Simulated scan of single mutants.
Amino acid sequence: MEITLRAPLDMHLHLRDAEMMQLVTPLTTETFSGAVIMPNLVPPVTSLEMLQAYKQRIMANTEGHAFDPYMVLFFKDYTEAELAAAKDHMIGMKLYPAGATTNSEAGVAQIDSVEHVFKMMEEMEIPLMVHGETHGFVMDRESEFLSIYEHIATKFPKLKITMEHITTAKAVSLLDRYENLRATVTLQHLIITLDDVAGGLLNPHLFCKPIAKRPEDREALLDAALRAHPKLMFGSDSAPHPISKKECCGCAAGVFTAPLAVARLAQLFDQHGALENLQDFISENAQRQYGVKPAEKMVTVTKTPFEIPQAYEGHGHRVVPMHAGETLDWKVTSIT
């Protein structure tokens, strides 16, 4: 059994920078036609010049694979002139609540203080991407943020808003209530719950933000993905960290899935008898929602064993992937 996917897209990806970028970039560009690149570097990508320079560094590390990096500005209080200059060079802007996740200290402290920027984005048709969490109790942070999504969606009805890496059944329900809301969902949140992270011995390589939630949340996410809800897109949130930052006190948040994402999604959809919907989930929905035309790439995934390495090494880094050391039922066998 096999399936050939046309132009797979990852609509939420961390490539980091410097040596780490050199290690992980080819692991995405080999199997994906394009990806939305997160801007929370140190320092964050906050100008057109920084965005263009980062794109050049990414393209220098694709190892010749056909790939389109969809660049994103880190949200801040930009002027109209700054947004106009950057508009044609980016797919949108990413809003981080200050301190909500990795390298987000320069994010937004008060949403109502930046509504004038939302207005400019609405008028200029620049999409808004949001890490939607409050600073409340960790299991409730996404749910508490949903009212903010509703407020922005209502007040700025022509502003296209992406709820990034949703993790709750309540977030899924918003997709059908507001025309201008859409969402990405990760591989890990379709598979794991908090029990997998901390129900037995702590598994730091499954710890991410937003944290995995309850079984009923996973089931709602999985149901929407398997039926390829037209406003739900695959966004891996693949977030590499060195082992020294994961297997330690103060473990960094992030699950590294880039090398296995396509094969693991094929296995997941096959297990649930929904393989025919994978093309929409991993590409067509994103093309419709964002109007992108990705690089031509055909990726064939075959039902044959694929042993995931214990770690990916190079350029002075060693990164542990999700399912390290396990054998999947599906494997990428051809890329043209």
Rank of each mutant, 00 (worst) to 15 (best):
A81M: 00
E82H: 08
A84V: 07
A86G: 03
M90H: 04
M90L: 13
I91Y: 05
I91F: 05
G92H: 01
G92W: 00
L95R: 04
A98Q: 14
G99C: 10
T101W: 11
E105D: 15
E105T: 14
A106H: 08
A106P: 03
V108P: 05
D112A: 13
D112Y: 12
S113W: 08
E115M: 13
H116P: 02
F118M: 10
M120P: 02
M121F: 05
E122A: 09
E123F: 00
M124C: 01
E125H: 15
I126F: 02
P127D: 07
M129N: 05
M129S: 01
M129V: 00
V130G: 02
H131K: 11
G132K: 06
G132H: 00
G132D: 05
T134H: 10
H135M: 12
G136M: 06
G136S: 08
G136W: 03
R141Q: 14
R141F: 02
E144N: 15
E144T: 09
L146H: 11
S147Y: 10
I148E: 11
Y149N: 07
Y149E: 04
T154G: 04
T154E: 12
K155F: 01
K155R: 14
F156G: 02
F156E: 01
I161H: 02
E164F: 05
I166H: 08
I166V: 13
T168E: 06
T168F: 09
A169M: 07
A169I: 02
L175G: 04
D176I: 10
Y178P: 07
Y178Q: 09
E179Q: 15
E179C: 06
N180T: 06
N180F: 03
L181Q: 09
L181N: 05
L181F: 03
L187P: 00
L187C: 08
Q188L: 12
H189Y: 10
L190N: 03
I191E: 12
I191M: 09
I192C: 05
I192H: 11
I192E: 01
T193Y: 04
L194D: 13
L194Y: 13
D196P: 00
A198K: 15
L201E: 15
L202E: 13
H205L: 13
F207S: 00
C208W: 01
P210M: 08
R214H: 10
E216G: 00
